[in-house]
Design a protein around this nucleic acid. Structure first.
Length: 414
DNA sequence: TCTGGGGTCCTAGGACCC
DNA sequence: TCTGGGGTCCTAGGACCC
């Protein structure tokens, strides 16, 4: 049996752990640059605030209703998430961390899954301070639906037995099934499939012909036939670092300084995973909401002769990519880099051109670089292309303190 | 005025191989 | 003039997820 443990309104719940004044009031957490609403308390949902709405569109109404908006505090969320995942690991062994706020576990045969989940829910609330909903079902797809239903009412939902299962599936719109998005839902509707029950009763082979193997698995999983097991964390396949500008820019030096920040950030994450990469995509995007400038969305891949984690080499690659993409008449709102071709650092693929001495040199250089920054603070050492103040451009007007990640921000009891 | 960021998987089609 | 069949690998783009 699978269980999906899903934190309720996760970012808002994290903020509430350390700020009791936020309880019982409408609270939203905003995306980077304080752009969109990405997490809402129940009180905010009750006000009709939609997910992903640009904050400026709802700000007035929201504040008039005693609402509080917060910038995202990812350090806090990542830390509380890690604590919750550790608790799950202690209890169940293997845990699939599906996202920052949800995890699948596989539960051995048990007399009463409901009691088990109920106890788990209490423990997470008591030890971490975060309320969760739990879905229980024989496949991951049904588990997702169960947790979706759990959100709505009792915080726990088990989807196992007929006739309740069919009855429930009949009430769920097909677009709410995990893996069915807007496009596929429209095509399914065209085939006369409107509910999760319709999809469950569809012929898997027909679905495969019309869609793909993933959708076929979804049909099987709705029929309680497991096609997906718990996936344990492996090495990432790509690392993205990107961001938007507050205003549109066409200045190449400014683009380069920002891309350099993203390269720095991506390479640091690469080294933390003990990995090397052999290529990098560089991307430039115009403002997709603007009608005054032509749209420009281009990217190019810069391949490296040898996989590395040396930031300097990716800085060079970034400059080359920017040269290829940059148009002096373009106006840009967003840019970023993506590291690809990731391999473990210990066993990189080599060829007759590989220089193992160079590898060792890179490794020692970057280890020294990282340890200086770890000891004396980030950006003590940085690359010439970077702008050390660049992060300050990011709008984060309403950020809460780093309660669990910064000594200076420790909550004080008085 | 102001509209996020980070990922994975699948498929079709081209290049190339024997 | 006639020009097979089977396969791998790579990439771009679509779709989906949080």
């Amino acid at each position: 049996m699978f269980m999906l443990i899903d934190c309720d309104n996760f970012f808002v719940s994290c903020e509430r752990v350390f700020q009791p004044r936020l309880r019982g009031r409408p609270v939203v957490v905003l995306s980077n640059n304080d752009g969109c609403v990405v997490s809402r308390s129940y009180e905010a949902k009750a006000l009709g605030i939609p997910m992903c709405v640009p904050y400026f569109k709802i700000e007035k109404v929201f504040l008039a209703n005693d609402g509080i908006a917060l910038s995202s505090n990812y350090e806090l969320y990542a830390d509380l998430s890690a604590r919750a995942m550790t608790l799950l690991r202690h209890r169940f062994g293997d845990v699939e961390i599906y996202s920052i706020d949800e995890a699948f576990v596989k539960v051995p045969p048990h007399d009463n899954y409901f009691t088990l989940a109920s106890q788990l829910r209490q423990d997470i609330l008591q030890q971490i301070g975060i309320p969760v909903s739990i879905g229980i079902a024989p496949t991951k797809t049904l588990c997702k639906l169960a947790s979706h239903l759990a959100k709505k009412n009792f915080k726990l939902c088990q989807l196992t037995a007929e006739p309740v299962l069919s009855e429930t599936l009949g009430k769920i719109d097909v677009i709410d099934v995990w893996g069915v998005g807007r496009r596929c839902a429209a095509r399914l509707n065209y085939l006369g499939i409107f509910t999760a029950l319709d999809l469950r009763n569809a012929d898997p082979k027909m679905i495969r012909r019309n869609f793909n193997v993933t959708m076929e698995k979804t049909v099987l999983e709705l029929n309680q036939i497991p096609c997906q097991d718990i996936e344990l964390p492996g090495m990432a396949k790509s690392i993205i670092s990107s961001g938007s500008f507050e205003f549109e820019v066409n200045n190449k030096a400014k683009l380069e300084a920002n891309l350099a920040e993203f390269v720095d950030c991506a390479c640091l994450r690469l080294r933390r995973q003990n990995a090397v990469a052999n290529g990098m995509w560089v991307e430039l995007h115009s403002n997709r909401f603007s009608e005054s400038h032509p749209q420009y969305n281009h990217s190019c891949l810069v391949s490296l002769p040898q996989a590395t984690d040396n930031t300097a080499k990716f800085m060079t690659a970034m400059a080359e990519g920017l040269d290829r993409l940059y148009r002096p008449d373009g106006w840009y709102k967003k840019c970023g880099v993506m590291l690809v071709g990731l391999e473990p650092r210990e066993a990189p693929q080599t060829n007759w051109l590989s220089d193992t001495g160079q590898n060792e040199h890179d490794r020692r250089l970057m280890r020294a670089f990282d340890s200086v920054n770890a000891r004396y603070g980030r950006k003590t050492l940085y690359f010439g292309a970077q702008n050390p103040q660049a992060k300050a451009y990011l709008k984060r007007e309403f950020k809460s303190p780093g309660f669990t990640t910064s000594w200076a921000d420790l909550p004080k009891a008085t």
